[in-house]
Amino acid sequence: MTDTPLLQVSGLTRYFDVSKPWLNRVLEREEKQFLTAAADVDFEIKRGETFALVGESGSGKSTIAKMIVGLVDPSRGRILFDGQEMRFEQGAAMRQLRRRFQMIFQDPFASLNPRWRVGSIIAEPIRTFGIASGADINREVGRLLEVVGLSAADAEKFPHEFSGGQRQRIAIARALSSKPEFIVCDEPTSALDVSVQAQILNLMRDLQDEFGLTYLLISHDLSVVRHMANRIGVLYLGRLVEEADAKRLFTEPQHPYTRMLLDAVPDLALSGRRRKPVTGEIPNPITPPSGCTFHPRCPLVVDICKQQVPAVRTTPTGRAACHLLEESALSSS
């Protein structure tokens, strides 16, 4: 039982219809337009590990996170949670499944209802799932507030009385209140001050050890990912271009895009190493480039890149999708 991955995602794809209204299309003789936010994404998350998805803005990180928790319906593909397929509709079986996962959002100023007291916010999952009732709820809320480093008396206050970091702690307490096994963290620290980021990340790690949590961490910040993740998936234009063990991704990046990202990270050690700046911008996902979608920016581009979508290949560190990997051209360059 323990060797089945907690979360399996296969062929996950999402298109968004971004066409103009029907009348405009008819008059201007335009086709329907679709934006591909995620294309054939496969990955697995094992129990107790932290899997991170990284990528630039618009690479489809958040869409994937939202599909996993049921906020966005996938166009294609399957999501298996502990071997059970997720079907996001009302029903007793799904309720049982929903109890086991939670989400932490990016903006702690928007993720807490400004009209609710902190106690009610944290108690909402407890009430919805009927985990406790009466005075037990208040006791549980107080305990959770203390678990995340706040005081039980804070339950009486409103969200606007707290700072960003404290609000994110409240959001974490809410996520913990249904006693989940799996938490999707969508950029949990990117709205916070740098000094507070580390506190929140350390809190998340402590909670992971304490409750045996599994995390899916969505981030664009490689230093956050390096601090937190066991394995990392790199997204480019909705496709997973590389997936590798976290430590080895930083030392032995396989895909040219991963290299470009790593090169762009500023380091405080001021090693004076020459950095290749990131060139170009992420293309328009409505009209993605042919073949490998990274080819217009790739420094190693060859003809085949413009024609064929690269297949996913096993690499020494994990998996990657690049035509050049077979000839091991990358490792020699």
Partner: peptide, 26 residues
């Protein structure tokens, strides 16, 4: 589209409840 509504949707809160308890007061 605010995240507090999404948080309620993640735990499967009923739409009527989301409308009356979350959105209406705001």
């Amino acid at each position: 589209n605010k995240e507090y509504v999404q948080a309620a949707r993640v735990i499967g809160a009923h739409p009527v409840k989301i409308l009356l308890r979350h959105i209406l007061p705001n």
